[in-house]
Each structure stands twice: as structure tokens, then as C-alpha cells.
Amino acid sequence: MENLHITKGIGENLDLRLLITVSILLEEKISKLPKEDIDYLQIFEVKNNKLLHRQEVPEQSEEYILQGNFKNTKIWAVRNEDINFNETWKIMFPEEY
């Protein structure tokens, strides 16, 4: 995905395997659903080696089992649009918002 950015915190502290997984799931969702069905805030929660991917509007959630041992964490992907309506996504920890 060419319009995907990560914060310094994600780059320094998130396991690369988890970042790749989040990126792939986000890209798959964007390619499969119409824009109006994708919330600007995508929430990824890792807990007990499961990944919950959810959004609030419209409400959707999917759960995945992770291969590997990952610490519990929450990751956000936030959609932005510039003045020309070009879409970008930023992956961050909630405390970086």
C-alpha cells in the first residue's frame, strides 16, 4: 500500500511481523469494501495471541489467531484525506494520536 505511513513509536516498538499483518488486513479491507463501509478509524487489538480487528461505524469486527508470541497491545490505523481527496493511512499507537 503506497499511502501507508507509520509513526516513530510503531517503527521502533512494534514487532515487524505484526506490522505486516496489520498492513495486509487493512489493505484487504480497503480493496474489498466500498469507502463508505470503512470507518476512518480501524482498531487492532492484540490479546492472548489473538488479533481483533474492528471498527465502530458501521460496526464490524473480525478475529484472527496469531502465530508467534506477541505482547498485548492496541494499534490504530487512521485515514486522512488531503485537499485533493488523496487518501492516506497512518498506523500508530493510541497514545500517539
Rank of each mutant, 00 (worst) to 15 (best):
N13H: 09
L14V: 08
D15V: 13
D15K: 07
D15I: 10
L16K: 11
L16V: 15
R17C: 03
L18Y: 09
L18N: 01
L18S: 04
L19G: 00
L19N: 02
I20K: 11
T21D: 07
T21Y: 08
T21S: 15
T21Q: 14
V22C: 13
V22A: 02
S23K: 13
I24K: 10
L25S: 05
L25Y: 06
L25E: 02
L26K: 02
L26Q: 01
L26S: 07
L26P: 00
E27Y: 08
E28T: 11
E28A: 04
K29H: 11
K29N: 07
K29V: 10
K29S: 14
K29G: 09
I30V: 15
I30L: 15
I30P: 02
I30A: 09
S31R: 12
K32L: 15
K32R: 14
P34W: 05
K35G: 02
K35P: 11
K35H: 08
E36F: 14
D37E: 12
D37R: 10
D37H: 06
D37A: 10
I38N: 06
I38L: 14
D39G: 03
D39P: 11
D39V: 07
Y40Q: 08
Y40T: 15
L41Y: 14
L41A: 09
Q42K: 00
I43L: 15
I43H: 07
I43A: 12
I43P: 09
F44K: 05
F44G: 05
F44P: 07
F44V: 02
E45Q: 12
E45D: 09
V46S: 06
V46Y: 08
K47H: 09
K47T: 10
K47Q: 14
N48E: 12
N48L: 11
N48S: 14
N49E: 10
N49Q: 10
N49T: 14
N49V: 13
K50W: 15
L51K: 02
L51M: 13
L51V: 10
L51C: 15
L51T: 04
H53C: 15
H53D: 09
R54L: 08
R54E: 10
Q55S: 02
E56K: 12
V57W: 00
V57R: 15
P58R: 01
P58W: 07
E59P: 08
Q60S: 07
S61W: 13
E62R: 15
Y64C: 01
Y64Q: 05
Y64N: 05
Y64A: 03
I65H: 05
I65Q: 11
I65V: 02
I65R: 08
L66C: 01
L66F: 09
N69F: 01
N69G: 08
N69P: 00
N69E: 11
F70Q: 03
F70H: 11
K71N: 05
K71M: 07
K71S: 06
N72S: 07
K74E: 05
K74S: 06
K74M: 08
I75A: 06
I75K: 00
I75P: 06
I75H: 02
W76A: 12
W76H: 13
W76N: 04
A77P: 00
R79T: 03
R79E: 01
R79D: 00
N80H: 06
N80E: 15
N80R: 03
N80S: 14
E81T: 10
D82K: 04
N84I: 01
N84T: 03
F85A: 10
F85Y: 12
N86F: 11
N86V: 09
E87F: 03
T88N: 03
T88A: 08
